[in-house]
Write a protein that binds this DNA or RNA. Sequence first.
DNA 1: TGGATTTTTATGGGCGTCAATGGATCGTTA
DNA 2: TAACGATCCATTGACGCCCATAAAAATCCA
Lengths: 154, 154
Amino acid sequence: MDRFVSTFTNKIDAKGRVSVPAPFRAILERDAYAAGESRGVYCYPSLDAPALDAGGERLAQKIDGLVARLPDYSDERDELSVALYGDVQVLSIDGDGRIVVPESLRAHAGLSGSVTFVGLGDKFQMWEPGRFEARRKLAREKVHEHKRLLGGGA
Amino acid sequence: MDRFVSTFTNKIDAKGRVSVPAPFRAILERDAYAAGESRGVYCYPSLDAPALDAGGERLAQKIDGLVARLPDYSDERDELSVALYGDVQVLSIDGDGRIVVPESLRAHAGLSGSVTFVGLGDKFQMWEPGRFEARRKLAREKVHEHKRLLGGGA
DNA sequence: TGGATTTTTATGGGCGTCAATGGATCGTTA
DNA sequence: TAACGATCCATTGACGCCCATAAAAATCCA
């Protein structure tokens, strides 16, 4: 199973378009093909970061799974649905591998000039480059702290 | 199976007409075609929110299913039937993809200038934009609280 | 190994189509 | 005939689609 890895930074042009990094695109395509669905990127504001979460069909099905566990027409289901489906935007990839990020999403992540794509395994995130740099630095430090806990595995 | 996803906000004109977002329309059409039924939107006041629930044939059949589970002529069945069927309006979509929301429904959701369409998987809701924003915020907080319970999925 | 060539990516711009919206027309009915 | 509903028409702006250029990567060949 393919995973999103590495980070790439691309520009947003005057029309709000951004190229999805080619390696990510390849994964999305295989993913969509496997699910028999049309291509499309599912994108929503990250719950705990000034960034956007995104992924393909596999991610969409994961969300379906969460909601489907709850009984039809229950309050919990409606609430969860609003938060999960309601915030999701389906971005289509044009012939040149680009997407348009709507204003509402761009605002949440503070995106303007360029975007940093960050692979996270079964999904990826989109960050304002500056903010991501800060976050990455912090993450490095934490990893360093926890390194001994990992017990020299990989 | 197609799902209603994303949110869209459209205007209500002087005559009470609103454009149904094109992606939703596409789903409704496929849905109606699959069921061999004429197009039409089933719409009723949400039971637990100042909003309207709406959907196509698939939603109608789901409601049928809920009611059918209860024994014939039971009080529960009568009550549920009234609650679910009683307030349902079948709205027709005109040639330009618009529906007219009747006054009674509009009152329940407090709709006036514009409407926010919220995809919830197998149905969608129509909200007064301001109220929806509040609801969405609340829902996100709840999801955030329960995130670990959900197994870190989304 | 080094250099040349071909292929993929990223990015910018132009253009046609479709969706959203407002207004007009026509028919029906009270 | 006035009011309302349904169908049709027109405008505008957004979005999808195509092409052009340039940079980078991969490939090939001497």
